[in-house]
Computed example of a mutant assay.
Amino acid sequence: MAVLRIDASIQGPRSASTELADLVEAEWTATRPGTTVVRRHLGAEPLPADAWASAIHGSFTPEEQRSDAHHSALSLAGSLAGELRDSEAVILALPLYNYGISQHAKAWIDLVMAGGDQGEKLLDGKPAIVLTTRGGAYGPGTPREGWDHNTDYLRRVVADIWGADLTLIEREFTLVGVNPALDAFAETAALMRKTAHEAAVAAGRTLAVR
Rank of each mutant, 00 (worst) to 15 (best):
residue 187 E to K: 13
residue 33 P to M: 10
residue 4 L to S: 00
residue 60 F to I: 04
residue 54 S to M: 09
residue 120 E to M: 00
residue 26 A to K: 14
residue 173 F to M: 15
residue 38 V to A: 07
residue 59 S to I: 08
residue 71 H to A: 15
residue 101 I to G: 04
residue 98 N to V: 10
residue 167 T to Y: 05
residue 121 K to M: 11
residue 82 G to K: 03
residue 149 H to R: 14
residue 74 L to W: 09
residue 199 A to S: 09
residue 38 V to C: 08
residue 157 V to G: 02
residue 117 D to S: 14
residue 190 A to T: 14
residue 106 K to M: 14
residue 133 T to E: 03
residue 112 V to H: 04
residue 135 G to Q: 02
residue 15 S to A: 12
residue 121 K to L: 12
residue 159 A to D: 08
residue 7 D to R: 04
residue 13 P to W: 10
residue 2 A to R: 15
residue 116 G to A: 15
residue 107 A to P: 11
residue 121 K to V: 01
residue 157 V to I: 13
residue 27 E to W: 10
residue 66 R to K: 05
residue 210 R to F: 07
residue 65 Q to D: 15
residue 176 V to T: 15
residue 147 W to D: 12
residue 96 L to Y: 02
residue 42 L to N: 03
residue 75 S to P: 05
residue 140 P to W: 00
residue 167 T to N: 09
residue 82 G to N: 06
residue 50 D to G: 09
residue 62 P to G: 00
residue 22 D to I: 06
residue 94 L to K: 11
residue 76 L to N: 08
residue 209 V to L: 14
residue 155 R to Q: 13
residue 30 A to G: 13
residue 195 T to H: 07
residue 125 G to C: 01
residue 101 I to Q: 12
residue 168 L to Y: 10
residue 64 E to P: 00
residue 169 I to S: 01
residue 208 A to Y: 08
residue 201 V to T: 12
residue 164 A to N: 10
residue 33 P to D: 13
residue 10 I to K: 06
residue 102 S to G: 15
residue 80 L to N: 08
residue 209 V to G: 11
residue 201 V to S: 04
residue 110 D to A: 01
residue 57 H to G: 12
residue 4 L to Q: 07
residue 39 R to E: 09
residue 33 P to V: 06
residue 135 G to S: 08
residue 173 F to G: 02
residue 52 W to F: 15
residue 162 W to K: 06
residue 207 L to W: 06
residue 37 V to M: 11
residue 172 E to A: 15
residue 81 A to D: 02
residue 10 I to F: 03
residue 195 T to L: 00
